[in-house]
Computed example of a mutant assay.
Amino acid sequence: MPLGAVAIVDYGMGNLRSVENAITHVGFSSDIVSIPEKLIHYNKIILPGVGGFGQAIKSLKASGMSESLTERKNNGAQILGICLGMQLMCKSSEEDGLHQGLSWFDAKVKRFPDLKGLHIPHMGWNSVKFEKNDAILKNLESGEDAYFVHSYHVACNNSNDKLAVTEYGLEFTSMIQRDNLIGVQFHPEKSQDFGLRLIKSYLELSC
């Protein structure tokens, strides 16, 4: 296993191949990891996700992956959550009932409001506006567009955790960051040049 390769967590609900291809495109290697104990070998871990929050957190907990992810977080591994992966980092979600998340961020996942003219899910390109500075943003410009597909959004209770925001009916948190944790609501692997630059910056972060 190459030292420094990034682990892509496979818990049955991620767009794994697209993420893997994006990592290869920017010149890095990755491993798809479905065995929790193997995460100990990685200092960079990507938690992707497509689908429902309840089933995702159930799968993570039943497999032991949530415990291993928390252990790696506590030991300084840099974890990037993508879309549902970002939402799983939060305290709770109201999607299909109330579900407890990994509780790494003091934040809740809420459904977009039913407003006239607001199509749900939020699908397509929208601008990402930075709220603070971070090394992962070094090759990006505030206001660039990323590709979104989601019906629920993250609401942070701690404004210091907001890395970027996006407008869609309301202003919602589209990137979160604290210490060795980063979450993005959009899909960088589908966001063309903007997304590839973000993935490359993440992979170049020093551990």
Score class of each variant (00 low, 15 high):
V33N: 09
K38I: 06
G27M: 10
I176M: 15
D31F: 10
E189Q: 01
D179L: 04
N160I: 04
N74K: 13
T173L: 03
S201I: 05
E71I: 08
Y168L: 05
I32C: 05
L163A: 11
C207Q: 09
A22F: 01
K38N: 15
E95H: 04
L102H: 08
V6A: 13
S34H: 09
D114T: 08
M1C: 06
E131W: 00
G27R: 09
G64I: 09
G85M: 06
V33C: 08
F194H: 09
S93H: 04
F186K: 07
A146F: 11
N21Y: 10
I46C: 04
E131F: 09
P48K: 06
L16W: 04
S68V: 01
I45R: 09
P121N: 09
N43I: 00
G49R: 04
H99D: 04
L181A: 00
K73P: 01
N139D: 15
S66D: 14
G27D: 11
M86S: 04
K44I: 06
I82R: 05
M123L: 13
E67D: 15
Y11T: 11
F172S: 08
G183N: 09
V19A: 10
G52W: 00
P2A: 12
N43D: 14
L137A: 10
F105H: 08
E144S: 13
